[in-house]
Amino acid sequence: MRNLWLFIGKYNAFFLLIIFFTISLILLVKHNSFQRARVWNSSNQLVGQSYEQVNEINSYLKLGKINDSLAAENAKLRNQLATSFSSDSIKQVAVRDTTLKQQYTYTVARVINNSVHQKNNYLTINRGSKHGISKGMGVTSAKGIVGIVLNVNENFSTIRSLLHSETKVSANVNGSIGSLVWGEGNYDPRFAYLKDIQSHLSIKKGNRVVTSEFSMFPEGTAIGYVAATRTREGDNSLDIKIKLNTDFATLEYVYVINNILSAQQLSLEAQNKIE
């Protein structure tokens, strides 16, 4: 105890400073409205800021869930798009928009495996037969087509990407129909080629390329736009280079298209072969 008093006596200036300074501060904060308001405000601000930061982290952790829900919502909205419906009535009848019947349904899926640098590229998605996926269905992304379902098991499906030498999609540019291919000397995942377009047709750079009614995709689904055209040697067709809308390297979510009427169409066409 004596040592304590000696210590305090030796450094009395410091202790006196603390005493008097504290008294002044108490007086200052108690009797001056501005300083009092500031003290409360800044403590509130501090609390508010910490809450805000925790919130930010929380929302970041929830991003995955939010993404999933947004993608599901997109699929739902796509189900309601006009292109998902087909006219059920005979064309001659004047009234036909009121009798639209669903032809295409979309299922959202996450790409869990992807390749773009192979000669034949495949994707894997986290949806399978359990979710109504079956072989031969078309797959699109939000921007454009992606590929065709190749194999299906209970929970997963593989997709033959558009970037595959055997994938051929019927495409429509300015009303003329050609076949979209990839490979054959072009292994750039950003471009594909459109074949079998007659060279007398005027195809210009920047023209939109969409799917035709002969593909398994809804008619008019975006593919890309014309990047360059070139007349083929010794042939009267054009080689059209197409910049693809879909960025295959960064695919995250895709939509699997189920053509409800395709079964009827296929069974009918199968009868032709038998005969």
Partner: peptide
């Protein structure tokens, strides 16, 4: 009309003076 403000400053100044 700034109760405690100059008092605080003077207290600090006294400490600086001692040092």
């Amino acid at each position: 009309d700034s109760l405690g403000l100059n008092a605080a400053a003077c207290t600090i100044m006294a400490f600086v003076r001692i040092i």
